[in-house]
């Protein structure tokens, strides 16, 4: 399969700025109450400091499959508003104290803002000016993938992950589904079709990214550390089944027989155990395995080299 759209440079240049503009205008259009508008725009400005990778993936896929309508930026803005809303909700659920604007609001306010943004995202897709059937398909896809993510987030919040297979199932739903959403909305708006190959590689990339995050959340000794929070992730699951009797305190902590105060000072010891058990090595290999599966599946599409390079630049 080859794709002939050659306007990569013109298309991707100034993309972040264009997405930001669309998102600001959509909040201004749909949030009528001044205080609501003000808080939403503040949250958006925080978001716009990030890379907007999901929205960029939407635009990239649309252009890859020969889409030419400028209204794709509105659809990509919808994707980013969806991502922002879920990010805000996640921070409330995790009681994350990172210093972002929405963590300074009362949780009920943050949830209300997020709910509104999610609804705006749907409206942008439905009313964004695309062919009605494709608009309907993209909005349906958004709600379908968010619902999948809700299921995955439930599994994550319950932390009842017995083994690696369950972890991968949870990650596919919680995280990878949103990347699938971003890529597939662009694809479907361009082609009107569901492309299973795109879903496949987007899922692999999403899983790789989540494992990468989980490796980081074991290495950083802060309030997000997954060992301290007794989170069952791929790295911690491996660690738990690899520890010897000599290092039993790790199991004791995870199973609640030790308190955080008992283990807070044992960071160096934990790092040494993670090294000697091969926890980080295993996790890194698993992450890279999924990343290479993404590369292989992407290669099967036989896209123009330039588009592949754009994709890899975003993924890297």
């Amino acid at each position: 399969m080859g794709h002939m759209n050659q306007n990569r440079g013109d298309t991707m240049a100034g993309l972040a700025e264009r997405l930001g503009q669309e998102m600001r205008e959509s909040l201004a259009a749909y949030f009528v109450l001044p205080r609501l508008q003000e808080m939403a725009q503040a949250c958006l400005e925080e978001k716009l400091q990030e890379s907007l990778l999901f929205g960029k993936m939407t635009v990239l896929h649309y252009r890859m499959f020969a889409g030419e309508d400028e209204r794709i930026y509105r659809a990509a803005a919808a994707v980013e508003l969806m991502v922002l809303s879920l990010d805000m909700i996640d921070d409330v659920q995790d009681k994350d104290n990172k210093s972002v604007v929405w963590n300074g609001y009362a949780p009920e306010i943050t949830l209300n803002l997020a709910l509104g943004m999610l609804m705006i995202a749907q409206r942008l897709l439905l009313e964004g000016g695309f062919d009605p059937e494709r608009a309907r398909q993209s909005a349906r896809l958004l709600s379908m993938q968010v619902l999948t993510a809700v299921h995955g987030q439930t599994l994550d919040l319950l932390n009842e992950i017995p083994d690696e297979e369950a972890y991968l199932d949870m990650v596919s739903q919680k995280s990878a589904a949103l990347l699938v959403c971003a890529c597939m909305i662009g694809t479907m708006l361009a082609t009107g079709e569901w492309m299973e190959q795109v879903r496949g590689y987007a899922e692999q990339l999403g899983i790789a990214a989540q494992i990468k995050n989980d490796i980081r959340d074991l290495a950083n000794w802060d309030n997000k550390n997954d060992f301290l929070n007794r989170k069952r992730t791929l790295p911690t699951l491996f660690l738990l089944q690899a520890v010897t009797d000599e290092d039993r305190w790790i199991l004791d902590y995870f199973e609640g027989r030790l308190t955080m105060e008992d283990v807070l000072h044992r960071r160096d010891e934990l790092e040494a155990i993670m090294e000697k058990t091969g926890t980080m090595l295993y996790s890194s290999v698993r992450m890279r395995t999924h990343y290479y599966r993404f590369l292989d599946l992407l290669g099967e599409l036989n896209l123009d080299v330039g588009w592949q390079e754009e994709m890899l630049a975003l993924a890297e």
Partner: peptide, 12 residues
Amino acid sequence: SEPRLFQENVWM
């Protein structure tokens, strides 16, 4: 030199 992958923290 692992791939940097995403820095996004959405539901991650």
